[in-house]
Measured scan of single mutants.
Amino acid sequence: LNLKQAKEEAIKELVDAGIAEKYIKLIANAKTVEGVWTLKDEILTFTV
């Protein structure tokens, strides 16, 4: 999975969960695949 694909998957998951745009922007700015997954997990843990 490359960075672009990771971001697309994570953003789709966050949108489906009804997460606010400000958190989705954090994913869009992530620099690594690991960073994308870590941010996604943290956002889902603390906002859902």
Rank of each mutant, 00 (worst) to 15 (best):
K4Y: 10
A28S: 12
I43G: 02
E21V: 07
E34W: 07
L39T: 05
V48C: 12
E42K: 14
I11P: 00
I19W: 04
G35S: 14
I24K: 03
E21Q: 09
V33D: 01
L39R: 03
L1H: 11
E8C: 08
N2R: 11
D41R: 10
K12W: 06
A10G: 02
A28T: 09
L14G: 00
A6V: 09
A10T: 05
V33M: 05
K12P: 00
L3M: 04
K40V: 15
L1C: 07
L14I: 03
K22F: 12
T45D: 09
K31T: 15
T45I: 09
I43Q: 01
L39S: 03
A28Y: 13
I24E: 02
K31S: 14
L14Y: 01
D16N: 13
K40E: 01
I43Y: 05
K4S: 10
E34V: 07
E13R: 05
D41F: 10
L3C: 02
I27P: 00
K25Q: 13
K31L: 15
V48M: 14
K31H: 10
A10D: 00
L1Q: 11
I43E: 01
Q5K: 13
I24R: 04
F46H: 15
L44Q: 03
Q5N: 10
A10V: 05
N29F: 12
N29P: 02
T32Y: 02
L14W: 00
N2A: 14
V15W: 08
K22E: 12
A20Q: 10
I24N: 02
F46R: 10
T45A: 15
G35F: 07
E42P: 00
T32C: 03
A30V: 08
K31F: 06
A28W: 14
A20L: 07
L14Q: 00
N2E: 14
A28C: 08
E8L: 11
W37D: 06
L26T: 04
T45V: 08
A30M: 09
W37K: 14
V48Q: 14
Q5S: 08
E9D: 10
F46G: 15
L44N: 03
N2V: 11
E21P: 11
K22P: 12
A17E: 04
T38I: 14
T47P: 09
K4H: 09
L39F: 04
I19C: 06
E8T: 06
E13F: 09
D16V: 09
L44P: 02
K25Y: 10
K25V: 13
L14P: 00
E9F: 10
D41Q: 13
G18L: 04
V15F: 08
W37S: 07
E42D: 08
A17W: 10
G18I: 03
I43L: 11
E13P: 01
K22S: 09
D16R: 14
V15L: 14
L26N: 03
E21G: 07
V33R: 02
T32E: 03
A10S: 02
L44T: 04
E9V: 12
V36L: 05
E42Y: 15
L14E: 00
D16S: 13
E13W: 07
T47Q: 13
A17Q: 07
A10P: 01
I43A: 06
G18T: 02
K25W: 10
E42I: 14
I43C: 03
D41A: 13
A30R: 03
A6P: 01
I27S: 00
K25A: 13
W37I: 11
K12E: 04
V33N: 02
I11A: 05
T32N: 04
E21D: 11
Y23K: 02
E21N: 07
E8Q: 09
Q5F: 09
A10F: 02
L1R: 09
G18V: 02
E8G: 04
A10N: 00
L26E: 06
T47I: 12
A6Y: 03
A10M: 03
E9T: 11
L1D: 10
K4E: 15
A20M: 08
V36I: 05
A6N: 03
G18E: 03
I27M: 05
V33C: 05
A10Y: 01
K22R: 11
K31Q: 14
K40N: 02
T47Y: 14
V15K: 14
T45Y: 12
T47L: 15
K7E: 01
W37N: 13
L39V: 07
G18P: 01
N29W: 08
V15A: 07
A6I: 07
N29G: 11
I27L: 07
K31R: 07
F46M: 15
E42Q: 14
E8F: 08
Q5Y: 08
T32S: 09
N29Y: 12
I19M: 05
K25S: 12
E21K: 07
G35W: 08
I24V: 07
E13L: 12
K7T: 03
K7P: 00
E13N: 05
Y23V: 03
A20K: 07
K12T: 05
G35C: 13
K7V: 08
V33Y: 03
G35M: 15
T45S: 15
A28N: 13
L14M: 06
L3R: 00
G35L: 10
K4N: 09
E42G: 04
G18A: 04
A6F: 04
A28R: 13
I19G: 02
